[in-house]
């Protein structure tokens, strides 16, 4: 588990959970913060689950970083399920657009 200020990243065998507020300064900052998730996708032997339901805010650099993870999953044909909370506005609005990048990405409401 890593806790960096206002967000928390917890890794599991089958994925990761991101929670809190993630408004980092740049794509480079996200690359470093999400390196472990990147590695999980690259090494995945089966489906992965990314739980974002507790992530209250993500800025546009973060949306880019998330889309990189989706494209990495697409590149490696990893089945990716993203857990969302439909009460959180950005999740309800933005994540369905990200799902258009990769048909094997499934959004599941908590």
């Amino acid at each position: 588990m890593s806790v960096e200020g206002e967000y928390k990243l917890e890794l599991r065998a089958d994925g990761a959970t991101l929670s809190g507020v993630m408004r980092l300064v740049s794509p480079a900052a996200y690359r470093s913060a999400l390196a472990a998730v990147h590695d999980q996708i690259e090494a995945a032997k089966g489906p992965l689950e990314l739980d974002l339901a507790g992530l209250q805010f993500l800025n546009s650099s973060g949306i880019t970083a998330l889309s990189r993870l989706v494209m990495l999953a697409r590149e490696h044909s990893v089945q990716l399920t993203v857990i969302i909370d439909e009460q959180v506005s950005w999740q309800k609005k933005t994540l369905p657009s990200l799902a258009r990048l990769y048909p094997k990405l499934t959004l599941k409401a908590r």
Binding site: P27, S61, I63, T64, S67, R100, L101
Partner: peptide
């Protein structure tokens, strides 16, 4: 979507 593909694939700022 166009902007995402552009920035994400080229590792650029958003």
């Amino acid at each position: 979507l166009e902007q995402l593909e552009h920035t994400a694939s080229r590792d650029r700022a958003a």
